[in-house]
């Protein structure tokens, strides 16, 4: 994608013009940023006390996956693990356009961060990430996962 930036000190109204061939997720994300609608998640480092910690704004693009354990939601990034004060369902609705898809009862993964999808000898299919971690894709979610991938591919065209 070619990017043109014009600096005009005298402009009264700053504006963004987007020329696109199809409304794919990347374009939608740019629109969200321009509209200031880009979802950001507030999280606190998982190892800190919730009362003392400071909220950190997390960019969905930095998150590998979300894990729901013991009624707590955690976001795994390259820099660490953060506890989110929201629900997995809310994140699923908010982030589907950003490559997040449900692969089990407690996991939402970012498909843009997947390094490889590979089955084990015991036939469990795992998504491996750049950070070396891997998440199992539950076979109950296999159909919806494939449908999501096909939908994202269609949107990307």
């Amino acid at each position: 994608m070619r990017l043109n930036l014009y600096e005009d000190k005298n402009t009264a109204e700053e504006r963004v013009d987007i020329y696109y061939s199809s409304m794919r997720p990347a374009i939608k994300q740019i629109i969200d940023i321009a509209n200031s609608d880009r979802p950001s998640l507030k999280g606190r480092p998982a190892d800190e006390d919730l009362d003392d910690g400071i909220d950190i704004i997390l960019d969905p693009g930095d998150i590998y996956y979300l894990d729901h354990i013991d009624r707590k939601l955690f976001a795994y990034t390259k820099n660490g693990v953060y506890r989110l004060m929201t629900t997995l369902v809310a994140c699923e609705e908010q982030l589907w356009n950003y490559g997040f898809v449900r692969v089990s009862k407690s996991n939402l993964i970012n498909i843009y961060k997947i390094k490889q999808l590979k089955p084990d000898l015991n036939m469990k299919v795992y998504a491996s990430f750049d950070n070396g971690e891997r998440i199992c894709i539950n076979r109950s979610y296999k159909k919806s996962f494939t449908e999501y991938l096909q939908r994202m591919r269609r949107l990307s065209e």
Binding site: G99, I114, L117, P119, V125, T146, L149, E157
Partner: peptide, 26 residues
């Protein structure tokens, strides 16, 4: 046959992911 399908489907999904990632980079 089930074993074969698991591996074939995973390969297909992996290809789809790579394709989506590639298109998103462009």
């Amino acid at each position: 046959y089930y074993y074969y399908r698991v591996f074939k489907d995973a390969k297909k999904q992996d290809k789809l992911i790579k394709e989506i990632q590639e298109k998103n980079k462009q």
